[in-house]
Amino acid sequence: MDDDNSNALRRMSTRTRKVATKMAAALGSSDNRTQAALARLEALENDNAGIETVEMNDDDEASLDEDDQGYMQKRSKGTKRKTRQAKALENARKAPRSFLELLQEANLESLPPHVPSYLRAAVGPPSSTSRRHFCSVCGFSARYTCVTCGMRFCSCRCQNIHNDTRCMKFVA
């Protein structure tokens, strides 16, 4: 481990580090377990398992013919190279914004409370706070909670599987 005082002398990069949103959420919050649960719910709305911004690039290149592509690559090496930052900016401008961003932009909170809107149409929390728990390994009703990560399991056997495979994956 480095000492703290050596940090002051070391030159730090000013480049902003790009962290995946899920990681950022997990790092930024004190309550990791709820964050992990939220991230998991968020993932239920994904189209593809991977990160989707990458595809924008793929698609642009894929639409060119193969010869063109080779030519483009050669040329781009010869002339001025796009910096990573410029590329990222361009992608950000081109990429479609997610619905949540649009929602934030619409500023629905500012509407008076009697106006029906997307936010007020949400069904709201359930009347009973009790919740059934299912084992994350086998799916049957789970009595026990993992002390390190908070996921559920139903038996010793499932606990072992959980510890070997999935435990701490989200919250480490």
């Binding site: 649960a37 998991r40 719910l41 949400a122 069904v123 709201g124 929390p125 359930p126 009347s127 919740r131 059934r132 728990h133 299912f134 086998c138 799916g139 049957f140």
Partner: peptide, 24 residues
């Protein structure tokens, strides 16, 4: 597939089981 067959549609009736703070 065993219990997955009915635990998946079950979410619509009880989203709370999944950790969603929404009524069924």
């Amino acid at each position: 597939l065993t219990n997955e067959r009915f635990l998946v549609p079950e979410m619509i009736f009880q989203p709370a089981d999944l950790g969603m703070n929404e009524a069924g």
